[in-house]
Design a binder for these strands. Structure first.
Length: 468
RNA sequence: GCUCUCUUCGUCUAGCGGCCUAGGACAUCUGGUUUUCAGCCAGAGAAUCACGGGUUCGAAUCCCGUAGAGAGCACCA
């Protein structure tokens, strides 16, 4: 039974898009193998905790359709799924490591730690804990009994070769000499990431640890822990890190990174996921657009490339446009109504769909393009005063149109254009602006048909004297 | 600085020893459709496969170096 997990920290506004990517792969792999996808909240850093972040993260996953089998609110037999509620478990395991002499107590102060780090840095050495407390554990334990705050550190053996097996990269060798005596249990009683992941992944029977490459270098520490506990290791898969256009790790300074931001911008969840699936992976038949179901079916974990791809917003936008264009009218109508809110008349929105479906790439493109349907233009992008007479003429002409359909409207207007001898391009631009206020708009005749005869005539006639 | 990872058009990628004078998609440019903008259709340019050595009859593909990029090096995850 395959069990995968995503382990977000509630330390930001929402899930990071890179995390959504990792979640997608974990989710898809679990689905593909009829396994379980678990969400575990890693809230062990009390200083960076953000109020409401957990709820936001959970709702974002659901909004993207990445449903989870176990997690907060869906307690399975491995509950709780919030690390802050598992403190006694970590404490017990940290104690076990002490028993096994794989870890030790440390009472060094922040000041002393800073001091040795400073010295090591000036000596151009890698900053590392000097094992000061390891050598006098008896004295340290006395101090702890007296109430001195303490941490528990991993006792990293010397000169030990540690081999991490990564599904995508093969065997990676590390030397224990390059590893620090990591803090496992902090003085506030909370575990650090390193202790918590190993304990939880094991207890929750996670079979495949699929995470971002930034964790690759701490994997040897985790291996040391698995070995100290005598536990079986999961399969490690380190996914490429998504990059900014400048190739640095995708960050909020240089890119919108919050998953919900894309939804707010009118990107469709399925389009975003489709785009994300193409990061480091490609469809065997070279397809670019495919459903999540298809992705689950054809994707293979081992086919993911390890080089870090740049997140290209332009291509995402194109893909979103493809999804919008391929959507049924009713579906788009529904999504649009939901996106723009209830203050817009349903029937009117529905009529505009055929005119704009090919023209918008995001749901947020809708209103700027169609606002003239809902209210008269307040200003005009070109000077209308010089067209006063012609507009009057057009107004009178279209007033006589009996069948108010785009074809008839067009013919009526064309006849005026021919009569006054104006170039079509200028003539229709004038009318377009009279009706919509803008030089760029959906097709004019069809728009006028939707607007209705009375309103259209009135707009044409009054274009030179805006009410505002 | 140390450790690890990565390196094919601007970007995402195909390629897994001969089918590659390197294919597709986005983007760009040109033409067509046209009452604007999109869309659609047609076409073009764009990678000496990071560089240098090997191995081989033959290398983008295998090996070794170099360079560049990225990540990690906290009582953060």
């Amino acid at each position: 039974m395959v069990r995968t997990r995503i382990a977000p920290s509630p330390t930001g506004n929402d899930i990071h898009i890179g995390n959504l990517y990792t979640a997608l792969i974990n989710w898809a792999f679990a689905k593909k193998n009829k396994g379980s996808f678990i969400i575990r909240i890693e809230d062990t850093d009390r200083t960076r905790l953000v109020e409401g972040a957990e709820e936001k993260i959970l709702s974002s996953f659901l909004a993207y359709g990445l449903d989870y089998d176990e997690g907060p609110g869906k307690e399975g037999k491995y509950a709780p799924y919030r690390q802050s509620e598992r403190l006694s478990i970590y404490k017990k395991h940290a104690d076990e490591l002490i028993q096994k002499r794989a870890a030790y107590y440390c009472v060094c102060t922040k000041e002393r730690l800073d001091e040795i780090r400073k010295i090591q840095l000036t000596e151009k050495k890698v900053p590392r804990y000097d094992k000061h407390c390891l050598t006098n554990q008896v004295e340290v334990q006395k101090q702890i009994k007296k109430g001195t705050p303490y941490v528990i550190r991993l006792k990293v053996p010397e000169h030990k070769k540690i081999v991490a097996e990564d599904l995508l990269r093969g065997a990676i060798e590390f030397s224990s000499n390059d590893l620090d005596d990591q803090v496992l249990l902090k003085s506030d009683g909370y575990p650090t990431y390193h202790l918590a992941v190993v304990v939880d992944d094991t207890l929750m029977e996670i079979t495949h640890v699929i995470r971002a490459e930034e964790w690759l270098s701490s994997t040897p520490k985790h291996i040391l822990l698995y070995e100290a506990f005598g536990w079986q290791k999961p399969i490690f898969v380190h996914l490429p890190i998504l990059r900014n256009p400048d190739r640095s790790k995708l960050s909020k300074r240089k890119n919108p990174v919050w998953a919900s931001w894309y939804l707010e911008q009118g990107y469709l969840p399925e389009a975003v996921l489709n785009y994300l699936s193409l990061m480091g992976w490609s469809h065997p038949e070279g397809k670019e657009i495919f459903s999540l179901e298809e992705f689950i079916r054809v994707f293979e974990l081992k086919d993911i490339k390890t080089s870090g791809p740049a997140f290209d917003q332009v291509k995402l936008e194109w893909m979103n446009g493809e999804y919008i264009r391929n959507m049924k009218h009713e579906t788009l109508n529904m999504k649009l109504l939901d996106f723009i809110g209830p203050q817009y008349p349903k029937e009117l929105v529905e009529k505009t769909i055929p005119l704009i479906q090919e023209r918008i790439k995001k749901l947020s493109d809708y209103l700027p393009l169609t606002e003239f349907f809902f209210k008269r233009p307040e200003k005009y992008e070109i000077d209308m005063s010089k067209y006063k007479d012609i507009l009057k003429k057009v107004g009178e002409k279209i007033e006589t149109v009996t069948e108010w359909k785009s074809k008839e409207i067009g013919e009526a207007m064309q006849s005026v254009a021919t009569e006054v001898g104006m170039k079509n391009s200028e003539f229709f631009m004038m009318l377009r602006v009279a009706i919509t206020g803008k030089k760029i708009s959906p097709p004019l005749n069809e728009s006028m048909e939707i607007l209705g005869k009375e309103e259209s005539v009135s707009r044409v006639k009054s274009a030179t004297t805006p009410e505002s």
